[in-house]
Nucleic acid binder design. Structure first.
Lengths: 204, 204
DNA sequence: TGACATAACAGACAAATGTCTGTTTTATGG
DNA sequence: CCATAAAACAGACATTTGTCTGTTATGTCA
């Protein structure tokens, strides 16, 4: 490879390695060598080791593909969660299996069971949740008053604000055009799917 | 390792491999061997190959740590972007360098230059953008009418709806309590930072 | 119980990958 | 221009890792 001014190539190597790590597979020394057209492995290695020395990369010695992003290691665990969609026979199932869509989420705890849903309807408009928004839900059987939750009422999944009045569960919309749902009264089968922990909206 | 009924161990191996892939490093055959206490590499290999045959895992032959999640192979590229925050002397700089915070974004195009901001104020309330929301912005010098943009007006970064009237730029809030900004008229230095492509809100 | 499929084991070889020692070439700053 | 540091090259060895052939043990089911 042609000679470049000090640090120039190293920066590109960092970008390359970083991207590879993020996309799921840290590169081998020789991956880097080939990607940059070095004629010696050591050329790649020297840059990589220097990046580790500078603290820009972390490394597990001796192991193959041992390079890591230092801050990211302990930052927050990343989880790939499934986009669910349709409600079918009272059970939430994966919509359009064909390709099941996944999204990345950074979570506080690794053992949370998460899933994502697309919101339909305008019942939570005043809570800043619009139709088409994606909500990320932590599956849990209970909730606290004030939580935004996803519940199965009858056959339909719905996003509402969780309240309790006189010991009874109430699901409140945040839009005057809609009425609260009081499960016991209307007798519809009711079950709490989980709590909304994040809202995402794509506006591209 | 003790003998288990058919498929029992394989399921656990699948979970193990999956988790390892998601956490950033696919395991080696011998990683699996050790994790399950097999006394032969082939035991692990057999299970892994079978999982590939069943379509539950994908694999790059010959390469170390070559196991993948099949659906994940084609997923959109992932990018780590910086959380910017404060506006300083007309320039957007990284807030609290000390740990620079990064978030994961799945992008359509890999070469977009993205950054993230925290929204202050309620001027975009009716567009479903609340104070504290994080907006992900693609840096670009122009915008189309209707876009939600981030602009630097004076020393302040502001999120508004981009409009044009009589060939002049107007920045419209989505809240009656606020007035539109018409850059030329009030004479404040104005520059377009980019277009909002995603909104995220954490409600934990 | 016995046939069968699967699980697990044993040992080895080959390829990929990490690592090392030393040399040559080029950019940079005085 | 020269001294120096960094970049790139060369070739090799050690370890890790993927792969293979064949054997033994155990669960399953008729």
């Amino acid at each position: 490879m042609a000679y470049t001014s000090p640090g120039k190539t190293r920066e590109k190597i960092y970008d390359f390695v970083r991207e590879r790590i993020l996309s799921g597979t840290p590169p081998t020394t020789r991956d880097v060598q080939r990607a940059f057209g070095f004629r010696a492995v050591q050329s790649a290695r020297q840059h990589l080791e220097k990046l580790v020395f500078e603290g820009k990369l972390a490394k597990v010695d001796g192991r193959s593909r041992g390079y890591r992003l230092p801050e990211f290691g302990k930052a927050s665990p990343t989880q790939l969660i499934a986009m669910l969609g349709r409600v079918q026979a009272g059970e939430l199932t994966e919509a359009m299996e064909d390709p099941p869509e996944y999204i990345m989420v950074q979570t506080r705890f690794d053992d949370d069971e998460l899933f994502a849903l697309t919101v339909e309807g305008e019942s939570m408009l005043h809570a800043g949740i619009l139709p088409g928004d994606m909500v990320i839900v932590r599956r849990q059987p209970t909730a606290s008053p004030g939580d935004i939750v996803v519940a199965l009422v009858g056959d339909e999944a719905t996003v509402k604000r969780y309240r309790e009045r006189d010991g009874r569960v109430e699901l409140h919309p945040e839009n005057e055009a809609f009425d609260p749902i009081i499960p016991r009264e209307d007798g519809a089968p009711f079950s709490l799917l989980g709590k909304v922990i994040e809202i995402r909206r794509s506006v591209e």
